[in-house]
């Protein structure tokens, strides 16, 4: 019998995402996938999975899920959200942050509001059908996820793995995000703006407007003026991170579900290493931008990959009280990192 989580409460903005659906942009299919692939990979690592398995992305408020079928499954939550496990008799225990935990049959997991985007991974990944190579939900075209959309009550989420092991995987360090201004590469239509516009982008603060979803985020701030060529271009290829500026001079940053081609001049693009940071911005947050060059963008990417590898290598095994499992210590790939020599009581 397969293990299933039943959706009791769908939360808000909860969808199944993986690393997205590359390869179909020429026919208008957005990349989709996790807004923060780093946090997705982290949640998956804590659940004992590879980085790319489908997990739940939680944008605003978390779902309540019940293990309706199967004995137990292992889950891990990554991101600024709390979660509690509610037993069949109503007894509650807190799910430790950045620590995998078992959910047993009849138990409910209630994930609260998120501050930023959070990811809930399950051992083995969610067993949803891949469409065009990915399980990522793209609701506009009904691709991926559960019936092509965000979670709804009564949805059944098939879980590929089972959880028997009482040990937990834990990492107390926060994910290594870069700080400071968001780094951008100018282009490709910076010559449709006044010479001052790029300086304004790189010096003025911008505020994130409430108009944001998985397609993109609107910013409010100093006006970025176009020159005589104007704001409109013949649509050309875009990608997540592209900063397009319509005629009102207020920039829009495209995100994972953003359309594949766009008809507004693009003044710059957020570098790929900084895309995960966009996932955690909230309406009203202040953003600043800094210019980098291609070499710096590549270095930032490498630095991020190395920092994440260190974070992952630092995942500890929390032995369940009273259990010693030497064999597991030697067989788990996580032994390459530092393994905690204690068991939380």
């Amino acid at each position: 019998m397969t293990t299933h989580l039943e959706v009791i409460d769908a939360g808000l903005g909860v969808s199944i995402q993986d690393l997205g659906r590359p390869g179909y942009r020429a026919i208008g299919v957005p990349l989709s996938g996790a807004l923060d692939p780093l946090a997705l990979a982290a949640a998956n690592a804590l659940a004992g999975n590879g980085a790319a398995l489908p997990a739940l992305e939680i944008r605003f408020s978390g779902p309540t899920l019940m293990l309706a079928e199967g004995e137990a499954t292992r889950l891990a939550l990554m991101g600024a959200a709390t979660a509690e496990i509610i037993g069949p008799e109503g007894e509650k225990r807190l799910a430790e942050p950045q620590t995998s935990f078992l959910l047993r049959r009849g138990e409910k997991l209630k994930v609260g509001r998120t501050n930023g985007t959070a990811y809930l991974a399950v051992a083995g990944g969610f067993g949803v059908e891949r469409m065009l190579g990915s399980a990522a939900t793209y609701a506009r075209a009904g691709l991926g996820g559960i019936k092509g959309g965000v979670l709804s009550p009564k949805d059944q989420l098939p879980c590929n793995g089972v959880g028997e092991d009482e040990d937990a995987l834990h990492q107390s360090e926060a994910l290594p995000y870069a700080s400071g201004p968001l780094r951008v590469l100018p282009g490709p239509q910076e010559d449709q703006f006044t010479p001052e516009a790029l300086d304004v982008l790189l010096s003025a603060p911008f505020s994130l407007s409430p108009a944001m979803d998985r397609m993109g985020m609107r910013l409010e701030g100093a006006r970025l003026n176009h020159n005589d060529r104007g704001a409109d271009i013949l649509s050309d290829g875009v990608l997540p991170g592209a900063i397009q500026v319509p005629g009102d001079g207020q920039p829009i940053i495209l995100l994972a579900d953003g359309q594949t081609t766009g008809g507004y001049a693009k003044i710059a693009c957020v570098i790929s290493a900084d895309l995960p940071r966009l996932a955690h911005l909230r309406p009203g947050d202040t953003l600043r931008f800094a210019r980098v060059d291609r070499t710096q963008a590549a270095a930032a990417r490498r630095a991020q990959a190395e920092a994440f590898a260190r974070w992952k290598a630092g995942i500890e095994i929390w032995k369940a009280p009273g259990r010693i499992d030497i064999a597991r210590l030697y067989t788990t790939e996580l032994i390459t990192g530092v393994t905690a020599g204690y068991c939380p009581a």
Partner: peptide, 22 residues
């Protein structure tokens, strides 16, 4: 709209950076 002067386009075709991945 703007007061800035558009720089002339370089001859086509041009290869322009869209991002560090495109």
């Amino acid at each position: 709209m703007s007061t800035g002067e558009a720089r002339p386009f370089a001859p086509f075709p041009q290869v322009r950076p869209l991002s560090d991945t495109a």
